[in-house]
C-alpha cells in the first residue's frame, strides 16, 4: 500500500512542514505519493518531485483549489485517499482545517498531531496540552493523520526524482469563497522553522517594547514569538503565539522573556533543546523548565544581552 502526503504550499513555494510530514510517512513505510492541490502550483509540484523519498507527485491545478478551501479540497482528497493505506498532512492551520473533513468523508477517525510512529497502525500523540502522551492504535482502512513537525526531522528537499501526474477531477462545492488575507511579512525566519526563537510575554508591557526582542533576534538570526497573554493583550498579532493553541515549536534555543510559563505556553515550547528564561519573578514556573534562568529586570537584561552578542 502507498501513503498519500498532502503538500503544504502557497501555490509558489513548498512549505518546509511538508518535509517533516514526508519523514513521518517514511517511518510508516511504503511508497510515498504527494498531492499538490492549488492553482498555478507547477513550481510546487517540481519542488515536491525533488523531495527525498517521494515516488510520485499528483497535481490538481484548478481555480477551485487556489485558496485551499476545504469544501472543495476534501472531496478530492477523500476520493484519492481511499486507495491509500494512510493520508498524512502537516498539523498546520491548513492541515487541521481540511484533514478532519477528509476523515469524515472516508468515515474514519483521524489521529491528530502524531509525534511518533511506533508501527504502521500505532502512533503517539500529546493530549492535555502535552501533560500526557497517548499511544493510539487505528484499525481504520485508511489511516488519516496530522503530523506535528517538531516530532520528525525533515527529509532532504533535494535528491529525489519523482514522476509528476496531473489529476483531472475537480470539485467546486460552491458554498464558500475566499475574500482576502492579511499575511504578515517578515524578514525573520518562520517560527516553526527557526533554530532560535526569542519570545515575549505579558512582562513586555506593550507592543513597542517588543522592539527590544526584535533587536536581539536580528543579531541571532532568530524568529520572534509571544505568549498567549501578550497576544490577548494586543501587544502583537496572533500568528506569533506559541502554545497549546498557537504554534508548537522546538528550536535549538528558546529564549523566554517576561513569560511566566503557563501550562498552555509550555505545551508549545518545552521540546526546545535549550531553554533560557529571563523573568523578574524567581518563582515563575518557566524556571522549572529552563536550562538557564536569569532572575532580573528584562528592560535591563535584554539590551545588555543584545550588546553582548
Amino acid at each position: 500500500m502507498a501513503i498519500l502526503v498532502i503538500a503544504e504550499h502557497d501555490n509558489a513555494v513548498l512549505a518546509a512542514a511538508t518535509l517533516n510530514t514526508v519523514a513521518a510517512a517514511q517511518q510508516i513505510g511504503g511508497d510515498i505519493h504527494v498531492l499538490v492541490a492549488g492553482q498555478g502550483c507547477g513550481a510546487v509540484a517540481e519542488a515536491a518531485a525533488k523531495v527525498a523519498g517521494v515516488a510520485k507527485v499528483l497535481v490538481a491545478d484548478h481555480a477551485a483549489y487556489a485558496h485551499q478551501l476545504p469544501e472543495n479540497l476534501a472531496p478530492l482528497m477523500a476520493e484519492l485517499g481511499k486507495t491509500y493505506s494512510h493520508v498524512l498532512a502537516a498539523a498546520t492551520t491548513n492541515g487541521k482545517n481540511v484533514l478532519p473533513r477528509v476523515a469524515a468523508l472516508l468515515d474514519v477517525d483521524q489521529i491528530s498531531e502524531i509525534v511518533k510512529v511506533l508501527a504502521p497502525d500505532t502512533f503517539q500523540r500529546p493530549i492535555y496540552a502535552g501533560n500526557a502522551i497517548a499511544t493510539v492504535q487505528s484499525t481504520a482502512a485508511v489511516k488519516v493523520l496530522t503530523v506535528r513537525g517538531t516530532g520528525f526531522d525533515a527529509v532532504a528537499g533535494e535528491g529525489g526524482s519523482a514522476s509528476i501526474e496531473p489529476i483531472a477531477s475537480v470539485t467546486d462545492a460552491g458554498i464558500s469563497r475566499f475574500v482576502g488575507e492579511e499575511i504578515a511579512k517578515s524578514e525573520r525566519p518562520e517560527l516553526t522553522a527557526a533554530k532560535i526563537i526569542v519570545s515575549g510575554g505579558r512582562g513586555m508591557q506593550n507592543g513597542d517594547n517588543f522592539q527590544l526582542l526584535y533587536s536581539v533576534a536580528d543579531k541571532l538570526g532568530a524568529a520572534v514569538g509571544a505568549s498567549r497573554a501578550a497576544v490577548d493583550a494586543g501587544f502583537v498579532p496572533n500568528d506569533m503565539q506559541v502554545g497549546q493553541t498557537g504554534k508548537i515549536v522546538a528550536p535549538q534555543l528558546y529564549i523566554a522573556v517576561g513569560i511566566s510559563g503557563a501550562i498552555q505556553h509550555l505545551a508549545g515550547m518545552k521540546d526546545s533543546k535549550v531553554i533560557v528564561a529571563i523573568n523578574k519573578d524567581e518563582e515563575a514556573p518557566i524556571f522549572q523548565v529552563a536550562d538557564y534562568g536569569l532572575v532580573g529586570d528584562l528592560f535591563e537584561a535584554v539590551p545588555e544581552l543584545e550588546r553582548a552578542l
Binding site: D109, A132, T135, T139, A140, E282, V289, Y292, G293
Partner: peptide, 20 residues
C-alpha cells in the same frame, strides 16, 4: 470507533537547570 487508546504516559520530564 476505529481508534483505540493503548496507554497514556507522562511525558519525559524536563529538569530545571541552573540560575545564572
Amino acid at each position: 470507533s476505529t481508534v483505540k487508546i493503548l496507554k497514556v504516559e507522562a511525558p519525559a520530564a524536563r529538569s530545571a537547570g541552573i540560575k545564572v
